[in-house]
Design a protein around this nucleic acid. Structure first.
Lengths: 331, 331
DNA sequence: ATGAAAGCGCTAACAA
DNA sequence: TTGTTAGCGCTTTCAT
C-alpha cells in the first residue's frame, strides 16, 4: 500500500511537503500542492490512520456508546451526533453497550486505547468506569442519564416533569387507578419517570401504592409480563404510564391478550413517539422526547470540550412534549 | 498516560517482555508475567492502539457499514455481527451510510485508513468504491444486496422468491388488482421484490401494469405519497406488496387517511416483521427476514476471509418466512 | 526465557 | 517555502 514516501518520490518533494499539502497547510506552494495531490491520486494513496494518530496522539473520531441500537430513541440521538460531527470532519463510531455494564466498560477501554478525541455515552446505570475517561482527560459527555457522582457535561430530558404531566393528563381524563411500568432500579430515567408519576398522584391527592408499579428491563418482553401481572390483580389499574416505546409494545400485547381496549378500558401513555404510535387502534398517546436534538447538543458540547477540557461542566435539560391521542381518552 | 516503558520499568523488565506478557505469549515466565500484569494494573496501563495497529499493520476491528441505522432490519444484522465478532476478540464499529453513496464512500476510506481487519457492507446501489477494498486486500463481505460486478462473499435473502410467495398469497386470498411499492431503481432488493411480485402475477395470469407499481426511497414519507397516488387512481389496487417496514408505516398512514381498512378493503403484505406489526388493526402480514442470522453468517465469512483472503467467493442465500396475519385476509 | 534495537508511517520542530 | 530528522509506542526479529 502506497505510503507518504511513495507520494513524495513521485511528486519529487519531501515527505514533509506531502504531509503539509495533503493536510491543507497554507504554507505550501500552490503548484507544488497540486502536484502532490496528483501524485497521491495516481497512487491511490490513503493515509495510514494509525501512524497519523500515533503521531498526533489523537484520532479525529468520536465514540458514541449507546445502550440499545435497536431503540429508535438512541438511533435518533446517533443521527444528531453524526450530523454535527461530520460537519467538522470528525467520524462517529457507534458502539452498542446493550445495557450491559461489562460491554460499556469494554467499549470505554477501546475508546481510550484508540485515543478517540471524545466519547458520548448513555451510561447504563451506576458505572464507575467513566472515571477512566475523565482521569485520562478524554473529552466526555453523558446523554439521557446523568452519572452518579461524576461531574461532566450532560444532556438530559426533563423526564420527571414529563412523566408528571403525562400522569396528570391521565388523571384529568378521569382515570384514578393509574399504574406505572418503568425501567430497572438505578437507571436514572426509570427512577425519574416513576418519581414524576408519583408527583402527579400526590398533587391530585391520589394514593400511591407499590401494587401499581412494576420495574423491568427496558424491553418488550419484560413489560408484557409486568402488564399481565398488573392486570391480573384483584384491583387492576385503569390506566398505565409506560417508560419507553419498546415496553409499550409489550404492554399493548398484554392488553390485546386480555381483550382490553386502550383508552376505553385502560388509559395509556408511553414515552417516545415511535413511528407506529399513530397506527395502532386507538392511536397511542406519547411523550415525545427530542432525541435528535439531544444528539446535536451533546456533539456540540463534546467538540467544545475537545477544544478546551477545562471548561466547567454543564447540564442541559431539554423539554419533552406530551402528544395526546386516543389511548388516553375514554371516549 | 502510562506507556509500555513505564510498565517495564515498574516491573523491572524490558518492554519486549511486557509486550509478550500482556499479549499472553507462552514463552514468558509465569512469575514474571504476573509481575508485569500487576505493574500494568497499578499504573492503569492501557495499550496505545494506534501504535499497536501501526506496528501490526492491522486493527482488530471490523467496520459494519449499513444503509440505515434507524431500520430494525439493519440493527438486527448489527447484533448478529457483534455477537460473532466479540467472541473472537474483534470490536465492531457501526457506520451509517444513510443510503448515500457519498457517505458510504467516505466510510470505506476511513475503514481503509484505519486499517480495519475487515468490512461488512450493505451496498447502497451501484457503487464502485468497494473496489478500493478488494484492490487493497481488505477482507470484505456484502450483506442484503450483492455488488454489481464484484466478486465477493455475499449474504442474501431470497427476496425475489419471498416477494413472489407473498404476492401469490394475496392472489390466493382473492385480491386481483395487486400493487407494489418498492425501493429505488438499481437497489437490488427493490428490484428483486418487484421481480418476484411480477413472477407471481405472471404465474397467476394476472396482467402486470406499471400503473400499479411505485418506486420511492425506502422511507415512510415516500411510501405514503406513493400509496396516496395509487389509491387516487381511477382503478386503484385492491392489495399492496410493500418492500420494507418503514414504508409500511407510510402506507398504513395513507390507508388511514383514505378511511380504508387493511385486509377487508385493501390487502397488504410488507417486508420485515417489525415489533409493532401485530399491534395494528388488523395485524400486518409480513415477510420475516432472518436479519440476525445474516449478521452472524456474514461475520463468520468475514473472519474466514481475514484468515485467508484467497478463498473463493461464496454466496449464501437465506430464506424468508411469510407470516399471514389479518391484513392479507378479507374476512 | 529475556533483552536490545529496528522500524511501522506519519507530523512537527528546527534548519536552511 | 521546503527539507531533514526525531520520535510517537508498540511488536518482533535477532542475539544471548
Amino acid at each position: 500500500m502506497a505510503t507518504i514516501s511513495d507520494v513524495a518520490a513521485r511528486a519529487g518533494v519531501s515527505t514533509a511537503t506531502v504531509s503539509r499539502a495533503l493536510n491543507g497547510k497554507s504554507t505550501v506552494d500552490r503548484d507544488l500542492a497540486a502536484r502532490v495531490r496528483e501524485a497521491a491520486e495516481e497512487l491511490g494513496y490513503q493515509p495510514n490512520g494509525p501512524a497519523r494518530n500515533l503521531r498526533r496522539q489523537e484520532a479525529a473520531v468520536v465514540a458514541l456508546i449507546i445502550s440499545d441500537v435497536e431503540n429508535p430513541f438512541f438511533t435518533a440521538i446517533a443521527r444528531g451526533v453524526e450530523d454535527v460531527a461530520h460537519e467538522v470532519g470528525y467520524s462517529v463510531v457507534l458502539c452498542n453497550s446493550d445495557e450491559s455494564a461489562d460491554k460499556e466498560n469494554r467499549y470505554i477501554d477501546i475508546a481510550i486505547q484508540e485515543r478517540v478525541a471524545g466519547v458520548i455515552l448513555s451510561p447504563s446505570g451506576t458505572t464507575t468506569s467513566v472515571e477512566k475517561l475523565t482521569s485520562r482527560g478524554t473529552a466526555f459527555v453523558a446523554v439521557d442519564r446523568p452519572l452518579p457522582e461524576q461531574e461532566s457535561d450532560v444532556v438530559l430530558v426533563d423526564t420527571r416533569l414529563a412523566a408528571r404531566q403525562a400522569t396528570a393528563h391521565l388523571i384529568a381524563q378521569g382515570y384514578d387507578r393509574i399504574g406505572c411500568i418503568t425501567g430497572p432500579l438505578g437507571v436514572r430515567t426509570a427512577d425519574d419517570r416513576l418519581a414524576g408519576y408519583r408527583d402527579a398522584l400526590k398533587a391530585a391527592r391520589l394514593r400511591s401504592t407499590t401494587k401499581l408499579v412494576r420495574r423491568t428491563e427496558y424491553k418488550a418482553a419484560g413489560a408484557r409480563r409486568a402488564a399481565q401481572d398488573l392486570l391480573d390483580q384483584a384491583e387492576p389499574p385503569d390506566a398505565l404510564l409506560v417508560a419507553n416505546s419498546a415496553m409499550a409494545v409489550g404492554v399493548l400485547q398484554a392488553l390485546q391478550e386480555h381483550g382490553i381496549r386502550p383508552g376505553r378500558d385502560v388509559g395509556m401513555v408511553a414515552f417516545d413517539d415511535a413511528p407506529w404510535a399513530e397506527l395502532v387502534d386507538p392511536p397511542l398517546s406519547v411523550v415525545a422526547q427530542p432525541a435528535y436534538e439531544i444528539g446535536t447538543v451533546a456533539a456540540r458540547l463534546l467538540l467544545a470540550r475537545i477544544a478546551d477540557n477545562s471548561r466547567p461542566a454543564t447540564t442541559t435539560t431539554l423539554g419533552a412534549r406530551l402528544i395526546e391521542r386516543g389511548s388516553s381518552h375514554r371516549g
